[in-house]
């Protein structure tokens, strides 16, 4: 699957099928610090992602 990351913006390829929790862990992220978006919809942590999915991992922490 194609995974878009921010800060810096970049796309990476990750093999599926994979649960959201596993994807977040694989990328070394904290589930509290990100939203996982498939297409334009949020997905829960137990959802399984597939090779054809386009995923955005959106950070939610702001420092202001």
């Amino acid at each position: 699957m194609q995974v878009r990351l921010h800060n810096p913006k970049r796309d990476v390829e990750v093999g599926g099928p994979l649960r959201v929790t596993e994807l977040v862990k694989t990328l070394g992220l904290n589930r509290e610090s990100v939203l996982v978006i498939r297409g334009d919809s949020l997905v829960t942590h137990d959802e399984t992602l597939h090779d054809s999915d386009v995923i955005e991992i959106r950070p939610v922490i702001s420092g202001g």
Partner: peptide
Amino acid sequence: MGERETAAYCVV
């Protein structure tokens, strides 16, 4: 509301 929730509110 946590900030994951405010971000999710914007998305939905």
